[in-house]
């Protein structure tokens, strides 16, 4: 889908532990995503899915364990530089409401990448074009639908040409009729060869797009495998119970 994908990397999460006080949110989570692959992380609320995602780009520092991009630990990197290589999309979009859509996308290009204004605008417009929102460049995010806002958020992350994209329940806050458009953009991105970790409740998306589906419960990945194996031949009883509830 974008030129960004040529540089995508493999991702490995190794034995990540994290506690907030007495609350042990992650208890040795592992996850593997091949280069250009898509892992969907499913599981009940409070199982640590979103927290795991945040340890990958170090929005939250793990207590123990490691995250490897192409075999190299991210813990050695400067976190700010690391986050430019890892795009993230949030449930609540987190667009900046006081700026136009275009400025939302150019902001990091100009302020962090130090690109000249015209170059940043060119990149931003191209990204907005890819998510079908070039016409909304001058609007404020508040004037867009939720689905449009989320597509802008994806464009904003992609503008930095990340090597990995993280999606934290990207469609959970959307009205049902808007979900499809956003999932479509994500599926295009996956088929274009972007390495992605997608925390989602959209089982249809996981089944069709994911290379790996990982089931999390109580801070660990209990079971992971190809979608067919996870959905049709789940081994773990807790996964079977979860699937019975959501499918």
């Amino acid at each position: 889908m974008t030129a960004a994908t040529s540089t995508s990397v493999s991702l490995a999460v190794r034995d990540v532990h994290l506690a907030f006080g007495p609350n042990r949110v992650l208890r040795g989570a592992d996850l593997d995503v091949v280069r250009g692959g898509t892992a969907c992380v499913i599981g009940p609320s409070g199982s640590g899915k979103s927290t795991l995602l945040r340890t990958i780009n170090r929005l939250i520092e793990p207590d123990r364990g490691d995250v490897l991009l192409d075999g190299r630990s991210v813990l050695a990197d400067d976190p700010d530089a690391l986050r430019q290589r890892i795009g993230m999309v949030f449930q609540q979009f987190n667009l900046f409401p006081h700026m136009s859509v275009l400025r939302n996308v150019t902001l990091a290009l100009r302020r962090i990448r130090k690109l000249p204004e015209e170059e940043a605008v060119t990149i931003a417009r191209a990204q907005l074009e890819l998510v079908g929102l070039a016409a909304k460049a001058d609007a404020r995010p508040g004037h867009l639908s939720g689905g449009q806002q989320q597509r802008v958020a994806i464009a904003r992350a992609l503008a930095l040409q990340p090597q990995v994209m993280l999606f934290d329940e990207a469609t959970s806050a959307l009205d049902p009729e808007l979900v499809k458009g956003v999932l479509g953009v994500m599926a295009d991105l996956a088929s274009g060869g972007m390495t992605m970790v997608v925390v989602t409740h959209e089982m249809g998306f996981a089944r069709e797009v994911a290379d790996t589906v990982a089931f999390m419960d109580h801070g660990v990945v209990l079971e992971a495998g190809e979608p067919a194996a996870v959905f049709e031949a789940a081994e773990h009883p807790r996964l079977r119970r979860f699937l019975a509830q959501v499918l």
């Binding site: 949030f90 667009l95 409401p97 609007a139 639908s145 806002q149 458009g181």
Partner: peptide, 30 residues
């Protein structure tokens, strides 16, 4: 500042529109 410059006001063309919820500007409300 709340609503942007008059020129940046929304036009009525709608593609997948649900007019964004009031108060959810930037998606950070709730």
């Amino acid at each position: 500042l709340r609503h942007g410059r008059p020129a940046a006001r929304p036009t009525d063309e709608i593609d997948d529109a649900d007019p964004a919820l009031p108060g959810a500007a930037g998606g950070s409300g709730r």
